[in-house]
């Protein structure tokens, strides 16, 4: 019996791969800013002190998603 297709998908499986690659950094960046907001709410005068670390943590966790973004350009 021939297989019957309900729908056909075209495109590149790499898009799914990037979606998977973005999960972790998404959660990570969310945690970084959530912690920054809650620490600022608890102690407003520490905002300037912790901003540097917030941006540093943001940049480092975001890097993984960006690596996923540029991999197709490197591999092709």
């Amino acid at each position: 019996m021939a297989a019957e297709y309900l729908a056909e998908l075209t495109g590149n499986i790499g898009t799914v791969g990037y979606g998977l690659a973005a999960i972790g950094p998404g959660i990570g960046v969310g945690i970084v800013w959530a912690s920054y907001i809650s620490s600022t709410a608890r102690q407003p005068e520490s905002a300037g002190l912790t901003r540097t670390y917030a941006f540093l943590g943001f940049a480092v966790s975001e890097a993984l998603a960006l690596l996923g973004f540029v991999v197709p350009f490197i591999l092709t």
């Binding site: 890097a63 960006l66 973004f69 540029v70």
Partner: peptide, 13 residues
């Protein structure tokens, strides 16, 4: 590497 890729990928995307 990440310094360059971060700026490039954000603006490109």
């Amino acid at each position: 590497f990440t310094l360059a890729v971060r700026l490039f990928a954000n603006m490109f995307a």
